Simulated assay, not measured.
Amino acid sequence: MTQRVDLATLMDRLAVDEVISGYATAMDDADWPGFLALFTPDGRADHRGAGGIEGSAAEVADWLAGVLGGFPVRQHLIGNRRLSFENFDGYPGEDRAEVRADCLSTLFPESGEATLAISRYTFGLTRAEDGWRLHTVMAGEKARRAPGR
């Protein structure tokens, strides 16, 4: 592998990482326009494995806004990222990436105890004209600790 290819791969890894971090930050900051901008026009998300819904990015953003609205302070920490690429020489719409990552969510209500959840996400990304965008997101909850549970 040449240095040029290595540099391109590194740049793609950084760009994909920025999208994944942006997903978590958008949920934490209730930045729903920013959340939607991370997706391809036909992008979809599936949160059924975490007790949610499956639908278009806009439908899921509306659902998340309602669910997370009761938690003014929230933090989604995404780590243990495992990234793979399917590369077709940098052509928009053809290059794909998949990221499997774990997420620790801490949700603080106005008063009372925090809710903690551990989830596994699978992100499917496509290279678009303006960079990497989410095409699919799947969330599956592994554990939850809520007040009274």
Rank of each mutant, 00 (worst) to 15 (best):
I78V: 15
F71N: 04
I78S: 02
R81W: 04
L68K: 08
Q75G: 10
W63I: 13
L83K: 00
D62G: 02
I53D: 14
I78P: 01
D62C: 05
E86Q: 10
R81A: 07
V60M: 01
G51I: 04
F85R: 03
G55M: 07
F71A: 02
V73N: 08
W63C: 10
R82Q: 14
A65N: 14
V73K: 07
L68Q: 06
G66P: 00
E86W: 05
G79W: 03
G55K: 03
G69P: 04
R74W: 01
V67T: 13
W63Y: 15
L77A: 08
G79R: 02
G52I: 06
W63A: 14
G51V: 07
A61P: 05
V73W: 09
R81Q: 11
I53V: 15
P72F: 01
N80G: 04
A58H: 14
L64W: 13
G66T: 14
N80T: 13
W63M: 09
A61H: 07
L64F: 15
G69H: 06
P72G: 06
G55W: 09
V60I: 11
R82N: 10
G55A: 07
N80Y: 05
Q75M: 14
A65W: 14
S56K: 12
A50S: 13
I78A: 01
N80C: 02
R74L: 06
Q75D: 04
D62E: 15
G69R: 06
S84I: 09
E54N: 10
R74S: 15
